[in-house]
Simulated scan of single mutants.
Amino acid sequence: MEKVTLSAWPTPMEAAPRLAARIGLGPDDLWIKRDDLTGLGGGGNKVRKLEWLVADALRCGADTLVTLGGPQSNHARLTAAAAARADLDVVLVMPGTGHPDRADGNLLLDAVLDARIVWAGDAAPAELVGRAEETCAELRGRGATPYLVPFGGSSALGARGYREAGEEILAQRPDVRHVVTALGSGGTMAGLVAALGPERVLGVDVGALPDPAPVVAAFATQLTGRNVTAGALRCRRDQVGEAYGVLHEPALAALTTVARTEGIVLDPVYTARAAAGLTAAVRDGDIRPGEPTVLLHSGGLPGLFGHAEATRRIGRTLRTYP
């Protein structure tokens, strides 16, 4: 099956010498893979997955994409953008009890992209999947042909996009020793593992799943045809903090450090945790000076503007002159 093209590839690889020095690496050790610069709907890593998933939806004759996520879901926002590009309708299933008084962050972009929202109340993540399936059944009853895009775009099919990303990284930095990525729904890390091997990929758990390692292993096994076990994966679980959407202090510190050394802004849930995990890995010796390292910037900037605690805390640091 051929994918559809939703962005221009490859994305840039940028040196980060000031950040490297700040966290204890050499000036030539650290690079940032700019997958935040994908050219669809505000950018982000989900575009790579959606190229394969939208192609499958079109192959199946779908006229509507249905997916699930939180109100500040980057994946939901990019699914809406991909639907617009492919001339499909889109329905997003989200927890909540109704239309917010003010749409901000990703939710504002969902409105710009003309997504329809199903508010699923206080549904837990597993219940949200069921509500998305019910939504597909309701759409079929109305004569539509829906296609259910999995949570985070993560499946063995969607993960093909990150196998391609891993191959890009190898072409840009053939000597890479570590690739550090946020680990959410599992597809991004699985694709990187398929391209680079489990020994070179460090996933930093953000708390989106109770235990993401078996999910990553299953996707990577399907992609490679080889048995990839959860125990073979490098997963840090020390950056989750209180919960998935709750601001984690090391993530906030990493977000401001990256911005103030390299002028690159991260999101508070995914990429900031990945950067915090990178910092911790250098501190405890899992990543050492002299080992070429790539931090994957998976996007998500709109989510910063929809994160009340992050905007409040960072806003307090605004300085005046003199």
Rank of each mutant, 00 (worst) to 15 (best):
P10W: 02
D89G: 13
R142E: 11
G197P: 08
N227A: 15
Q222N: 05
R319I: 06
A120S: 14
L295P: 04
A310N: 13
A220V: 04
G315H: 12
V228E: 03
R77V: 05
V269G: 00
E249C: 05
V204Y: 05
P125N: 09
M1A: 14
L318P: 06
V54Y: 02
G303E: 05
S185V: 09
P302E: 00
D36P: 04
N106A: 08
L53F: 06
A124E: 15
V176A: 09
T188A: 04
A254K: 06
E2N: 15
T188Q: 11
R59N: 08
D56F: 06
G207K: 03
L296M: 15
E133Q: 15
R48Y: 08
L255W: 09
G184E: 04
T271M: 06
E51H: 09
G225L: 07
N227G: 10
A218E: 14
L192R: 02
E127F: 01
D267E: 15
Y321W: 12
L68C: 10
A275I: 07
S7W: 15
G43E: 05
V112W: 10
S154A: 14
T135C: 15
G44C: 10
D205T: 05
L192C: 00
A159F: 01
H178R: 02
R77M: 06
A195V: 05
M13I: 02
H307T: 05
V282Q: 02
D63K: 03
A275D: 07
T145K: 07
G105I: 07
M94T: 15
L113M: 14
V204N: 03
P146C: 12
M94I: 15
T317S: 15
D267T: 05
T188C: 11
L252A: 08
E134T: 14
A217L: 01
G184N: 01
P17V: 11
E168V: 03
E133W: 06
T229D: 10
G70E: 00
G306E: 08
H297D: 02
L19H: 05
A310G: 07
A308K: 10
T320A: 14
L233Q: 01
A182K: 01
P210R: 12
R102Q: 12
G277H: 04
L19I: 13
Y244H: 14
